[in-house]
């Protein structure tokens, strides 16, 4: 792309961020009343809603039930107006189906599935506005929704993306960087165990650079974790304080 520099000579990206800087993260848990758990999350201009239903009895054919653990059912869909060019279908296309599978795998790794045999948990993710990092925002929002629903989990799952531009690793890439920078690495981790539950790379990247990008992305995940965890804890403390007041009469 001529005339467009993803990383300026002064070391700033197109949206004014430094290479290791995240986009602004804002979120709210419990946006819906009817769902068992829900969350809304913004990472820059990427906006995602997640809802969790269950654990409940298996819907549809009972044959799907797993006798020793919880069945996690996911659906990823994008609003038709979420992308720059209008999408014809909100779900059912290859990309959404792949994303659904990815989400399923990710959350199977972290939810304590053996506690709920023969039942089902639904995780629904809806992308309202997409500006790169859809998978990451979806995972982060779904984690918050699961916390809101009180589903037992080993840890948070936090996802972050990264790329490599001008000999510099960059994190939390937006749509422009996603489509022009070349390599894109997406990682989902359990931040407190330093375990990777999902990793994907598109396009090519020299092996020598891989570890540097990975380190940067892992740091990005840690940063996101700290942001989310801080607010979740604060809210919980506030709630506990109010409950205490109520109990004390």
């Amino acid at each position: 792309m001529a005339g467009m520099e993803l990383l300026s000579d002064q070391g700033f990206r197109t949206d004014g961020r430094k290479p290791n800087e995240l986009r602004r993260i804002r979120f709210k848990k419990g946006v819906f009343k009817q769902a068992d758990g829900s969350a809304y999350l913004e990472q820059g201009n990427t906006k995602v809603l997640a809802a969790v239903y269950g654990p409940h009895e298996i819907r549809g054919s009972k044959g799907k039930a797993l006798h020793d653990k919880l069945l996690i059912n996911c659906q990823y869909s994008m609003a038709t107006f979420s992308t720059q060019d209008r999408k014809r279908r909100p779900r059912g296309d290859r990309k959404s189906q792949e994303m659904t599978m990815h989400l399923k795998q990710t959350f199977n790794a972290v939810v304590l599935t053996e506690l709920f045999p023969k039942v089902q948990l639904d995780i629904y993710v809806e992308v309202l506005q997409s500006d790169g990092g859809n998978y990451c925002a979806s995972v982060n929002a779904a984690t918050l929704a699961l916390i809101d629903a009180g589903i037992p989990m080993k840890d948070y799952v936090i996802a972050c993306s990264g790329s490599f531009v001008k000999d510099t690793p960059i994190v939390d890439i937006n749509h422009l960087e996603e489509s022009t920078a070349g390599a894109e690495i997406i990682v989902a981790v359990l931040p407190r165990f330093d375990q990777i539950v999902f990793i994907e790379m598109n396009s090519r990247l020299h092996e020598d650079h891989l570890s540097r990008v990975m380190d940067q992305v892992m740091n990005g995940c840690k940063d996101i974790f700290n942001i989310l965890n801080q607010q979740v804890k604060d809210e919980l403390c506030k709630k506990a304080a109010i409950d205490k007041l109520v109990d004390a009469g």
């Binding site: 009817q34 809603l49 997640a50 809802a51 059912n73 659906q75 869909s77 609003a79 629904y124 809806e126």
Partner: peptide, 12 residues
């Protein structure tokens, strides 16, 4: 589009 967020019955 009836989002499945509204109710699991809208899935698919």
């Amino acid at each position: 589009d009836c989002s499945a967020n509204a109710t699991p019955a809208f899935e698919g």
